[in-house]
Each structure stands twice: as C-alpha cells, then as structure tokens.
C-alpha cells in the first residue's frame, strides 16, 4: 500500500496523489454543507420569539440573561486550535521518519480533540439545563444542529486519529505512507477552520 501510493503519485496527470485530490474535493464539498448550516443560523439570528437567548437582552421589560459563556468557549476553541499545531507536528515527525514523535503528536491531537468534545458536551448540558432544547426556539434548533454536526465531524476526526495512532504504535506508518497522516491532517485542519468560522459568526459577532 505504501509503495502503491508513491508510485501513483508519479502516475497522475497533476502530480497530486488521487487520494489527496479526493480529500480536497471532499473538503470543498463540505464547505457548502457547513455553509448551508451556518447560513441557516445567520438567517434565524435574533428570530426566536421566546427564550432562552444566546446573549443578555431585555424584551418587554423582562431581562433575559444570555447563555453564551464566551471565556469558556474561547478556551475550548483555543484547545482545538492547538490540536492543529500538534497535527502539523505529527505529520512533520513521520515525514522525518520519527515514529515515536508521530505516536506522541497523534495522541496529543486526539486528546485535544476529545477535550474540545468534552467542552462541547458540558456546554450542551449547561444550555439544556437552562431550558434550551432542539425544540425550544429557533436559536435552540439552529445552534444545536450546527454545532452538533460540527461536533460529529470532530468525533469522526478523533476516530481517524485514534486509528492512526494504533497503526503507528504497531509500526505500520512510515515516511513512505505518511500520506495517510497528511490526509487525516487535511480533514482535521478543515474541521478546525470551520470551528473558527462558527466561533466568530455565532459566538463573537452579535
């Protein structure tokens, strides 16, 4: 498999490996998937006719305190951002054929990803306890579906990272099939970038 990948790289018209091109096209397609979800959230921003609301507001003399905890979410966004750094380190390690470095950085990336997921689970629980559900209002519907699908993508990413980690521990990843790590990295960075967009548009911009 390792050998096949390197041979194919020279055989393609563009010089880009088939699998890498597939990943780029897939991510391009994903842009429209998240574009649809984010667009829906923005369309319905401030359209909820009953609480809870994302930010503090006073409606008809009644004060509602907002659900968003920006410092908390900033930290979990930072955690996810850092996981991109460790992902880069993992790839660079295996490209130098540093198998031990690969294991460490893959594990670190997966752990950071899981930390982010734990933060999301905590946030969802908090919001739920405050009365925000999928059916409570438009905010609940659009928020949970958007961030939920993002969380599902992160979970898939963690699964991929853990699989790679197990392969790496068994010594099945070398500098020759580092492409596997690179593909996982592309996906992981994409999921990370999407979160930056969501964090900016959903949490920060009010």
């Amino acid at each position: 498999m390792a050998h096949a990948a390197t041979v194919d790289e020279h055989a393609t018209n563009t010089g880009i490996d088939n699998r890498k091109l597939l990943m780029w096209l897939f991510l391009a397609s994903e842009c429209l998937f998240f574009g649809g979800l984010i667009g829906t959230y923005l369309l319905y921003r401030n359209s909820s006719i009953e609480g809870p609301y994302p930010t503090d507001r006073v409606i008809d003399g009644v004060a509602y305190s907002g659900l968003f905890d920006i410092p908390f979410t900033s930290i979990s966004a930072f955690v996810l951002l850092m996981s991109s750094v460790t992902m880069v380190l993992a790839l660079s390690a295996i490209q130098r054929n540093d198998r031990r470095g690969l294991q460490i950085w893959l594990a670190a990336t997966a752990l950071l990803g899981m930390t982010f997921l734990a933060g999301q689970a905590f946030e969802f629980t908090e919001f739920y306890n405050e009365g925000l559900t999928l059916n409570s209002n438009l905010f609940g519907t659009t928020f949970f579906v958007l961030t939920g699908f993002h969380g599902a993508h992160v979970s898939v990413g963690v699964l991929i990272l853990l699989s790679l980690w197990i392969m790496a521990r068994r010594g099945r990843i070398t500098s020759e099939n580092a492409l596997n790590v690179e593909l996982a990295g592309l996906y992981w960075h994409f999921v990370d970038v999407v979160w930056i967009v969501i964090f900016t548009l959903v949490y920060l911009l009010q």
Partner: peptide
C-alpha cells in the same frame, strides 16, 4: 451538500420537533 442540509433540517423538524420550518416559532 446543500440538499443534504435541507433534508437534515426537514428530518429534524419531523422526527425531533425542531423548528426550522415552523412558522409558529418564527
């Protein structure tokens, strides 16, 4: 991907009572 999102939305509305197309919720 666009129809995928739309289909998920209609399914969330139908199966789990979400509000994407619910005029009553705005």
């Amino acid at each position: 991907p666009i129809i995928t999102v739309a289909l998920f939305q209609i399914l969330f509305d139908r199966l789990f009572g979400a509000n994407f197309f619910n005029v009553g919720a705005g």
